[in-house]
Design a protein around this nucleic acid. Structure first.
Lengths: 148, 148
DNA sequence: GCCTAAAGGTTGCATTTTGCAACTACATTG
DNA sequence: CAATGTAGTTGCAAAATGCAACCTTTAGGC
């Protein structure tokens, strides 16, 4: 996770986010954490990631205040990794990736796991950027204003 | 960009999205493409990525139908890389990463580039998953339904 | 308490990916 | 037609990753 050296990547929030989360495993760890996974071994089995890499990523995510490691709630002496507020606020990122994958990366008829609103039992609606007025905001109607 | 081997990563749209986009550069390339960057050299200078890596990523993004390479519109003999519809629909992903970074990755007073609604000149509102009724949907009110 | 197995890592080594610099090929400019 | 710019490719060194073995602490059976 080398830092992006060019200056525009330092002042761009997208670049900074990817400095923290932009590797093959970190966002999958966070996804599983949203699904309630908390223990090292469960992350490891669920992801199929090498144990040393998982240990490294968990450490970095804790350092980045995305996860916190705390004594397990179930009374056992082991500890567990839980999303912080900062980690929880990655929810839109994970949902956006999910919805993009759902739309573009599966063949017709191919099954995939779905994200459900537990209050209604229905799939979560597609999320999109919106104007202040609430209407969908296409990319062409935006631009990035560079820092002063 | 090795494929994630464990089965749950193949049926999870998040996992599949990250198989395609989950490296340090692909989403930055797409971000710059949203900003209007089209040419190899402009991506290279803007990102500071090694040229061989950029060539490899552009090739993979074209293979994944995120970008299309076509003759340059400006009459020059070179070609340019433009977002496909599939690529354009990564907009929510890029915006979500941006908004997470804005909120959590900058110190008070530190400047960062902002995404502006060109119709109003105001920053794009924070995007969040919503229920069918339109109210914000917290992670705890969702669950992933595994495939049958 | 004692033994065994599982959990949660760490370490060493082979493989893969990345970064850097040099090189090539073609196009454009003067 | 020489010089410069664009768009790569190639070779090699450095870093990240994957894999297996090892270690230490905890949990469970007796």
């Amino acid at each position: 996770m080398t830092e992006h050296s060019v200056d525009s990547n330092r002042t761009c929030p997208v670049g900074r986010s990817l400095d923290v989360m932009g590797d093959r495993w970190s966002l999958l760890i966070v996804r599983d954490a949203f699904d309630g996974v908390r223990r090292f071994g469960d992350f490891q089995r669920g992801l199929g990631v090498a144990r040393n890499i998982l240990a490294d990523r968990l450490r970095k995510l804790v350092d980045a205040d995305v996860l916190v490691s705390q004594p397990a709630a179930d009374g056992s002496a082991y500890q567990e990794y839980v999303l912080t507020r900062r980690g929880e606020s990655l929810f839109p990122v994970v949902v956006a990736l999910r919805q993009w994958g759902e739309k573009h990366l599966f063949d017709r008829g191919e099954k995939y796991s779905r994200l459900i609103d537990t209050d209604t039992g229905k799939p979560v609606p597609v999320m999109t950027p919106r104007t202040a007025g609430g209407s969908p905001l296409p990319p062409a109607q935006t631009r990035v204003k560079k820092v002063v």
